[in-house]
Design a protein around this nucleic acid. Structure first.
Lengths: 219, 219
DNA sequence: GTCATCATGTAAGCCGTTACATGATTGC
DNA sequence: GCAATCATGTAACGGCTTACATGATGAC
């Protein structure tokens, strides 16, 4: 999960740990954000595995400002090498990470991997622009199916426990049901957008669209 | 968290582990439910701490069908002792748990405790009928405040990252914002219901209602 | 000069999951 | 008799949080 988040953010720009954490809060919300205690070890592990590369920025000899280097660094690190950015705020002792080709491949795997959906869907969606269109569609449809399941199970629970449940539980369940319906509608909009964006030629080997399966208004 | 769920469910009726797990799925949804691997140890711990009491039902000598016993057991166990329920489905080797007075007190503490809101709000709400009305109101208002925070932080993120974020992240953030607005409206309905239910006399020492703080339609 | 923020890490421990092990009961 | 479900547990392991430890920089 943390790998997904880190690789996804580094796909867009090179970042150091502290900034990474701020971005993490932005996209994951204050709740369910990660702490430094897990972020830094994760970065170390990703570096060890060759999925990210780190450049230490400290009191640098910024001689030769235009080295091509390995070519995999861009964004902040490149800007730094180019001579800009040094005064932005204490550019000492910051370890700027960049995603490697292997890291990009891993990100693709993580987004395509169906296990750990549910928990990580939001993150996968946030970074799905780095995957192929068909992976995106699959992700969205898998999510839709899960939500439909969740919805019907929720309704079943309300019926099954109708005598037992008090007004608080009832309100909770009803609210949850409505939220899930809205989530499904949202996913449907994303799916529709995805289909119109994709080249129409690819439509034939994508199979017929899922049965429209009305999710219904308030019962 | 698991303590909260277990004590809450046992407040309503005596249950054995397996049934407890099913109820857990009902109220917490299929996602974020607990597994046997954590449920059974938790039950053992709660029993050790005197928060629940267990009655083993196995191939029983059900002599003397009307013992008063300790008096703390009710529901399924009582029904069993009364001679009903034995044929409902293999009543052998089931360990039926009942909440103790200490357990009820602990449940009250867990619901009132502000830490671990966010993660456990739904569970707290589900079982808040076992607490005092003022605890319920405090819980709801704490939640409302958290959601308002979340909302404003979300909006700030959208503005702050407006250039950086792609359409997937944008859609995610907008959907999240809308969901949060709906959550707040829902909480407001619960708060309103709570206030009208509470005896009007108590209104004076509850302080003035929170500033109405419009959460706004689509910006 | 001191405080808030930026910045990076380590260590202990909680909480929960997965996988394993076992056995009774019911329906076919 | 065999599979599915009911029912209870244990053991290993993983991921993330909390708390701790450290130090630079910038604002006032």
């Amino acid at each position: 999960m943390i790998d997904l988040a880190v690789l996804g953010l580094l796909s867009e720009s090179d970042l150091h740990g502290y900034e990474l954490k701020k971005r993490l809060r932005e996209i994951m919300g204050p709740l369910s954000s990660v702490s430094f205690g897990s972020l830094y070890p994760a970065l170390a592990r990703l570096e060890r595995d060759g999925l990210v590369e780190a450049v230490m920025l400290d009191a640098v000899d910024h001689s030769s400002p235009s080295i091509p280097m390995t070519g995999s660094l861009s964004g902040e690190a490149a800007a730094f090498r180019a001579g800009r950015l040094r005064s932005v705020r204490g550019s000492r002792n910051k370890k700027v990470y960049a995603i490697s080709p292997a890291g990009r491949a891993r990100l693709g795997e993580l987004i395509a991997d169906p296990s750990g959906d549910e928990r990580n869907f939001n993150l996968k969606l946030a970074f799905c622009r780095w995957t192929e269109p068909d992976v995106r569609l699959t992700l969205l449809e898998r999510r839709r199916a899960a939500l439909v399941d969740c919805l019907s199970e929720g309704r079943r629970s309300i019926v099954a426990g109708s005598e037992r449940i008090d007004r608080y539980v009832r309100s909770l369940m009803e609210h949850h049901t409505e939220s899930t319906e809205r989530d499904i509608a949202w996913i449907d909009r994303l799916i529709a957008a995805e289909r119109t964006t994709a080249e129409p030629m690819a439509a034939e080997h994508a199979g017929p669209p899922v049965e429209s399966q009305t999710i219904g208004g308030k019962p």
